[in-house]
Computed example of a mutant assay.
Amino acid sequence: MPRHDHASLFIPPALTRRRLLGGALAAAAVGATPGASVFAQAAYPTRPVSLLVPFPPGSATDAIARALAPQVSKALGQQLVVENRPGAAGTMATGIVAQSKTPDGYQIAIAPATVFKVPHMQKVPYEPLKDLTYIMGFSGYTFALVVPESSPWKTFQEFIAYAKANPGKINVGTSGAASTGHAATMRLAQRTGADLNHIPFKGGSEVLQAFIGGHINAVLDGGWAQVEKQGKGRVLLAFTAKRMPRLPDVPTAIELGIQHVARSPIGLVGPKGMDPAVVKTIHDAFKGALSDPTYRRYLETYDLEDAYLSGADWYALAQKMWVDERKILEELDMLPK
Rank of each mutant, 00 (worst) to 15 (best):
N84R: 15
M121R: 12
I11F: 10
R234C: 07
G213I: 11
N171D: 13
M1P: 14
T33V: 12
F201N: 02
A177M: 11
F138A: 08
E300A: 12
P112K: 04
R191S: 14
V250H: 03
I216D: 09
G204N: 08
S291N: 10
A312H: 14
H198M: 04
L299G: 02
L129K: 12
P112C: 06
P248I: 11
L188G: 03
R19H: 12
F143W: 02
G288S: 13
P271G: 08
E83P: 01
P152R: 10
L304A: 09
R234T: 13
L290T: 06
W153A: 02
A67L: 05
R18W: 09
Q99M: 05
D275K: 06
L329F: 01
F55M: 07
E158F: 02
G204I: 06
F211T: 10
I110Q: 09
K169G: 07
V124I: 06
P86Y: 04
L68K: 01
Y141S: 14
D292I: 01
P57R: 13
I96H: 02
I170M: 14
G87T: 01
Y106V: 12
K229I: 02
L332Q: 05
M334F: 00
D313F: 04
Y106L: 06
A65S: 07
A316H: 13
W322M: 11
L76I: 08
G222C: 08
G233V: 08
E255P: 14
D313L: 09
F239A: 12
L51Q: 05
